[in-house]
Nucleic acid binder design. Structure first.
Lengths: 155, 155
DNA sequence: AGATGTCGTTGGTGGTCCCAACGGTATCTG
DNA sequence: CAGATACCGTTGGGACCACCAACGACATCT
């Protein structure tokens, strides 16, 4: 029988504090998320972009000519950061920034042909990285994992 | 029957690019992890510390008097960041930094009584935050989720 | 015409992670 | 013992991410 009356440790018993912390879902989530980000960002870096570029490029592809603010609302990026991301994408020739004649406050962001081609490659690279991320899971486990993960993410 | 011959989109069919990205495990992992970090860090902030403080405090509690470099290796923090974290903990009176007489290169980091009490409260707050993080899952689902999560995190 | 609000942009903060270099100290080796 | 080697804590810096405040330009509502 173990000693279970360690009052000072708040009911956690004799478990080492570090062991306890590392067992927390939040800790494991951070580890898994960091691994995913590493895998994905390394893959995308082979095409010279970051994850934010991929996300914004995807949004532009979906929404056709679209204002920056609308992109920001859709993707969740701060307007400040959106400026930099679009600067990069524009400099790389993947999107165009044109003044909107109907509302001169807005920039109409559009995908270039090269942007479309790049996006297709990015999507493939992203899929491959995610394939590796879930490599230890069987197809059934992946489905179950994603289902539970979504519940946790949405709260 | 849907059109499945959209060559340009690399086999993804007619699915919008954003929908595709958001369905990726890496994307959902990031969302869930961000939510967990937000919940935990908000909870720990009520005791005036960040997650790194909690982790290091736990390591000090486990390892008794211990050198900074050893703490860094155990917790994975960069030596540079460890300096700042210990500065904070020391300023708050939670740990002591004493020169190690046996090896004058080292600082012997020890937990103070107040550090021990604070750590117990932090552990409780962390547990509560994690309880909320997994609130949408049944006990059985939580167990299964953690099991799969560990596999993904470890790669 | 004036109030109100949105547009893109600039500037700044804080957290996380990583790398390079330094003076001080210990240890290993000839 | 002397010199090479390695580790200690510290400083400085950079990249990325998330977030907030303020601004001039412009559109819209009343």
């Amino acid at each position: 029988m173990e000693n279970e009356t360690a009052a000072l440790t708040g009911g956690a018993g004799d478990e080492p504090a570090l062991t306890r912390i590392r067992a927390l879902p939040s800790w494991q989530l951070n580890r898994a998320s960091a691994r995913g980000r590493r895998l994905v960002s390394e893959a995308l870096a082979r095409e010279g972009v970051r994850m934010s570029h991929h996300a914004v490029l995807s949004a532009v592809s979906d929404l056709g000519p679209v204002a920056q603010a609308e992109l920001g609302r859709t993707t969740g990026f701060d307007p400040k950061d959106m400026v930099g991301i679009l600067n990069d994408l524009q400099a790389a020739g993947l999107v165009t920034r044109a003044p909107d004649p109907l509302d001169r406050r807005k920039n109409a962001i559009s995908l270039t042909d090269e942007g479309g081609r790049r996006l297709a490659r990015l999507a493939e690279l992203g899929d491959e990285a995610n394939e590796e991320l879930l490599g230890a899971l069987t197809p059934g486990e992946r489905e179950r994992f994603l289902e539970l993960l979504r519940k946790v993410a949405e709260g």
